[in-house]
Simulated scan of single mutants.
Amino acid sequence: MKAIGFKTSLPIREENSFFVFETEIPKPGPQDLLVKLKAIAVNPVDYKIRQNSAIDTVLETPKIIGWDAAGIVVAVGEKVDLFNVGDEVFYAGDITKSGCNAEYQTIDQRIVGKKPSSLNFTEAAALPLTSLTAWEILFDRLRINKDLDKGKNLLIIGGAGGVGSIAIQ
C-alpha cells in the first residue's frame, strides 16, 4: 500500500519532510479493524508529532502520522464484535499505532464509531478529535449534566478553531 511518512523531523519546507513510500497492508490484531481509508483530516497534533518524533535522528522505517479518519472496514480481528466488513466508520486514531496517512489502517474497534449516514467521508473525518475534545471539556471537565443543567446557558468566549466551533454548536 502507499503511505506518507517521514524519517526525521525536518522543517516542513524541506523536500524530504514527507515522502510517499510503499509498505505492507497491516494485519488486524484481535480487537482491530482493518479500514480502507476514504478521507483523513489534519490537526495541530499531526504537526507537533512530526516536529518532535525524530529530532536529531533518522528513523529506520518511516513514521506514518495522522489520526482523524473515515473509511470502510475491510477485515476484522478474531475478537471484533462491534463491526462487520463493509461498515462505514470514523475515528480519532491511536497515537501508539501507525497513522491514517496511508491507504489502510488498523484501529482498535473500541475507539471507532459508525459513520453517520448524514455525513460523507470527508465531513466525518473532520470531526473525531475536535468533537471528542469539545465533549471532554464540556462533560468531563466542566461536568455539565444534561438533566441538572437543563435550561442553563454557557457562554463560550474565543471559540475559534475546531474545538471551539464544535463546543459552540
Rank of each mutant, 00 (worst) to 15 (best):
V112L: 03
E14L: 10
V73H: 00
Q169T: 04
K152L: 09
I144W: 08
E136C: 07
K97Y: 08
L119A: 06
F18Q: 07
D32V: 01
E103Y: 03
D108I: 08
A134R: 00
K152M: 05
P26D: 02
K63D: 12
V20N: 13
G5M: 02
F121L: 06
F90S: 03
R50A: 08
G151Y: 07
E60I: 11
I55C: 07
E14H: 15
P62K: 06
K79C: 05
D147K: 13
I55G: 06
E88P: 10
A3W: 03
K38F: 03
V20W: 10
L33D: 02
M1P: 14
K48N: 14
F21P: 02
L148W: 04
A160Y: 05
G161T: 04
S9C: 04
G162M: 01
A39R: 05
P62D: 01
K63Q: 15
D68W: 01
C100L: 08
A134N: 04
Y104D: 09
N84Y: 09
R13T: 15
Q51P: 11
A70I: 05
Y47W: 15
F18E: 04
L10S: 10
C100T: 15
L132A: 13
I137T: 14
G71K: 01
A41W: 02
K97A: 14
E24Q: 12
L34H: 06
P11S: 09
L33G: 01
N84D: 12
G162S: 02
G158I: 00
N43T: 09
V42Q: 05
E24D: 14
E60Q: 10
S165Q: 14
A126D: 09
N84I: 09
L138T: 01
T133R: 02
G162I: 09
L59D: 04
F6R: 08
A54H: 02
N145W: 06
G164D: 00
V89Y: 00
I64N: 00
A41Y: 01
E15R: 14
S98Q: 15
N120T: 03
G29S: 13
I72K: 04
L142A: 13
K150S: 12
I72Q: 07
Q105K: 13
W67L: 14
I144S: 06
F19I: 02
S165Y: 07
G29W: 06
T96H: 14
R13V: 14
R141S: 13
L142K: 12
T122G: 13
F121E: 07
K36A: 09
I157K: 11
V35H: 05
D81K: 06
N43F: 02
T133P: 01
A126P: 02
L119S: 03
N52G: 14
P30K: 08
E60R: 10
I95D: 05
Q109G: 00
D32K: 00
A41M: 02
K63E: 14
V58E: 13
K79L: 10
D81I: 05
W67K: 12
